[in-house]
């Protein structure tokens, strides 16, 4: 299971199987430069592989006022 926290709204999502960051972004309907995808101390580019047990943060970068 891959656990994803969405920021800034704080929503938590879980995905049983995802291979790459790009797959995750496609599932979320997001583009890679609209969000930061964070795993621990790293920013992940869209080609990076994901693994069972990963805990990710997806942080929106578009400011809205």
């Amino acid at each position: 299971m891959i656990r994803v926290r969405l920021e800034p709204d704080g929503k938590i999502l879980e995905f049983p199987r995802l291979n790459t960051v790009l797959q995750l972004l496609n599932r979320l309907g997001l583009r890679f430069n609209q969000v930061l995808v964070i795993r621990g101390p790293e920013l992940l580019t869209r080609d990076r592989r994901l693994y069972a047990g990963d805990e990710l943060t997806v942080r929106r970068v578009t400011s809205a006022g």
Partner: peptide
């Protein structure tokens, strides 16, 4: 771009206030 400033803040460990202004909903700029 704002993607780049967001990457910069993350890499520099800068804690930011990221909640949108409660009055900005529907702003045309977005």
């Amino acid at each position: 771009t704002e993607y780049e400033t967001a990457c910069y803040c993350f890499l520099k460990g800068i804690e930011v206030h990221d909640a949108p202004c409660p009055y900005s909903r529907g702003a045309t700029f977005t």
